[in-house]
């Protein structure tokens, strides 16, 4: 067998995986998603330009603040070291907060239209995060930046009311059995870092996950997302299938009533419970997960952001 033969054999994977990974290339899907704008935006985000633009803006504003003599040095009482605020016109606000820095007080909100990033996220040159199988470094600046146009649970409820039938039809076509489908009334975002080069702790509020159950069983996680420049239109992308979903559902059921926190570090995903319990839905071993949070006694506090929580 060689690479060619393996590629040939992989042609026989189940239809459901092919459909699951299918991009919107049929004519109706294309017109529904307006991919040109979507692709442009995604390419733009992935290109690193937003980071560069934000950095230039921040530098410019920093110089402005210095010139005005308003840059504050570290306050021994509060531990606040530097505070820089952009003008409202630019819709950028980045604050370095106190050094223990966790929790909702450390949350910073960025306005629409600007992709925010702090420069101390995971880097490829960092020995801890470099090379294959890298573990992104937790940003030193623990400020959590909220970006994107928030999808509220109320908006989601309205959306599901009209779209649930089509979502279910799509899932059924892909082999998911649904007899009593219902979706969670609240959703959650992710606190993430390391996914983009140089990304700090960020919550993309325009991506929000909702849990789709069939009776008691979790069968799909439906991501609702909104693309900037599309007049607020919401799209959906359901994930489903495999042992992964089963394990995910079981873990959520075991932690019923707890305010769970959803974190994404690079391409790895974690759910943290306030009692210190945690899991990686993909089945990562505990030792490996610990490497992600090395030196952090209570990651839940560090990453806490209400928008990224869900209470099953």
């Amino acid at each position: 067998m060689n690479g060619e033969r393996i590629f040939e054999l992989l042609g026989n994977i189940d239809d459901c995986w092919i459909l699951e990974a299918q991009e919107p290339t049929t004519a109706s899907e294309v017109s529904a998603l307006e991919p040109t704008m979507k692709e442009r935006l995604r390419s733009f985000y992935a290109s690193g330009w937003p980071v560069a633009i934000a950095a230039v803006l921040l530098m410019t504003m920093g110089i402005g603040v210095i010139l005005k003599g308003t840059l504050r040095n570290k306050d021994p009482e509060t531990g606040v070291s530097v505070e820089t605020h952009a003008t409202e016109e630019t819709h950028v606000m980045v604050s370095q907060v106190n050094e223990t820095g966790a929790g909702p007080n450390g949350v910073t909100e960025a306005g629409p239209g600007v992709f925010d990033s702090t420069p101390d996220g995971g880097t490829e040159t960092d020995p801890k995060s470099g090379g294959a199988g890298m573990i992104p470094k937790i940003p030193e600046d623990r400020t959590i930046v909220l970006t994107g146009d928030l999808i509220t649970d109320e908006e989601a409820a309205v959306y599901f009311e009209s779209e649930m039938r089509f979502i279910c039809e799509g899932l059924r076509a892909m082999g998911v059995s649904l007899t009593d489908p219902h979706v969670s009334s609240t959703g959650y975002c992710y606190v993430q870092y390391g996914g983009y080069e140089g990304e700090g702790l960020t919550v993309h509020q325009n991506f929000r996950d909702y849990l789709l159950y069939d009776g008691e069983e979790l069968v799909s996680i439906v991501t609702l997302f909104r693309i900037q420049g599309e007049d607020g239109r919401i799209h959906n992308s359901p994930a489903f299938g495999g042992e992964w979903m089963k394990g995910y559902g079981e873990w959520l059921a075991e932690h019923k009533g707890q305010e769970l926190l959803f974190v994404r570090a690079g391409d790895a995903e974690f759910i943290l419970a306030p009692n210190g319990d945690y899991t990686n839905p993909a089945g990562m071993e505990k030792e490996e997960i610990d490497q992600y949070f090395e030196g952090i006694a209570y990651p839940y506090e560090i990453f806490y952001c209400e928008a990224a929580t869900y209470t099953p």
């Binding site: 992989l10 026989n12 994977i13 189940d14 995986w17 699951e20 990974a21 991009e23 489903f240 391409d267």
Partner: peptide, 28 residues
């Protein structure tokens, strides 16, 4: 080859959907 494909199918089932999509986009 039959054994290989059975293993691949099981492997794909074990992946989280996001990763599986990436795998399928690249190798299918």
């Amino acid at each position: 080859e039959k054994e290989f494909m059975e293993n691949v199918q099981r492997f794909l089932s074990s992946l989280p959907p996001e990763k599986r999509r990436i795998f399928v986009r690249r190798y299918w």
